[in-house]
């Protein structure tokens, strides 16, 4: 990025998270996470199971209420901590429209066809006219390669197809940021590629993305930057090559070693 060594102008930063804390009862799931994602940047988050990756994503779009810290997306800055309450429903809903999120289990609406799923956000949330939303939804389904499946109900889609519809559904809100939480983990191995293909295309188009994944090969190919989380903290971050090939933190080293061992591959 050309402006990389200039001080980040505020409109160059899409997400800024500062000293974020989250508790589940006694469990301290996020222990002061700070993170900045620039416009158009593709950030990957990796780390062992239970380290807080999903929690971090869910705090970014406030599906979870952080205990303390600041979450900022675009111009919206929301503080948490003593004296700061969760914004009201309307404000929260408005805030979330600028963030698209895709989940591990797709979570398509089962009573709606593929195209109705994609139209739902624009029509219900943004109040766009159905005809216009229909055109937009068609375009998006074409983009994720599912033009022929627009009238299928989710139960008649394969996992890979369902996940691509879910991506189209999130894109239909024309969000400024896309969050992906292990979106290929529930898929049969032969279906992973078609979903990663769509994500690759989005990254190429300059979409700002935060991606939680265990697909290390994909991360090394697509990531502008990778952060490694462990036990609710970011312990290392850098470019894909730095993090994956020259890990400094011992916990990251053992994570990657275990990973390559499990996958039967060695770091290239």
């Amino acid at each position: 990025m050309s402006a990389a060594n200039l001080p980040a102008a505020s409109d160059d930063v899409m997400i800024r998270i500062t000293d974020l804390h989250k508790h589940y009862a006694k469990l301290h799931a996020l222990k002061g996470v700070s993170l900045t994602v620039k416009r158009g940047e593709v950030l990957f988050v990796i780390g062992p199971s239970g380290c807080g990756k999903s929690t971090l994503l869910r705090c970014i779009n406030l599906l979870e209420e952080p205990a303390a810290g600041t979450v900022a997306v675009g111009e919206d800055v929301i503080h948490f901590g003593p004296g700061h309450r969760m914004p009201s429903g309307g404000v929260l809903a408005k805030y979330r429209t600028q963030i698209g999120m895709v989940f591990q289990q797709f979570d398509l609406f089962p009573h709606m066809t593929a195209i109705q799923n994609v139209m739902e956000g624009p029509v219900t949330v943004k109040g766009i006219r159905r005809k216009q939303a229909f055109t937009l939804a068609r375009e998006l389904l074409k983009k994720v390669g599912l033009s022929e499946k627009e009238n299928n109900y989710p139960r008649n889609l394969s996992g890979g197809q369902a996940q691509r519809v879910a991506i189209a559904r999130a894109l239909a809100m024309q969000p400024r940021v896309m969050l992906f939480d292990e979106v290929t983990s529930a898929l049969d191995p032969e279906l992973v590629g078609e979903v990663l293909g769509v994500m690759f295309q989005l990254a190429e188009e300059g979409t700002t993305m935060v991606v939680v994944t265990h697909e290390m090969a994909f991360a090394s190919e697509v990531a502008d930057r990778i952060v490694f989380m462990d036990a609710g903290q970011i312990v290392e971050e850098g470019t894909a090559d730095d993090v994956l090939l020259q890990p400094r933190n011992p916990r990251l080293q053992s994570f990657l070693a275990r990973f390559h061992h499990n996958m039967g591959t060695a770091p290239s």
């Binding site: 809903a93 979330r96 429209t97 698209g100 989940f103 956000g121």
Partner: peptide, 14 residues
């Protein structure tokens, strides 16, 4: 399913 609630919220529904 909880996923339905969160998917709807994530779209920005009230």
């Amino acid at each position: 399913d909880r996923g339905q609630w969160q998917a709807a919220r994530a779209l920005g529904m009230t």
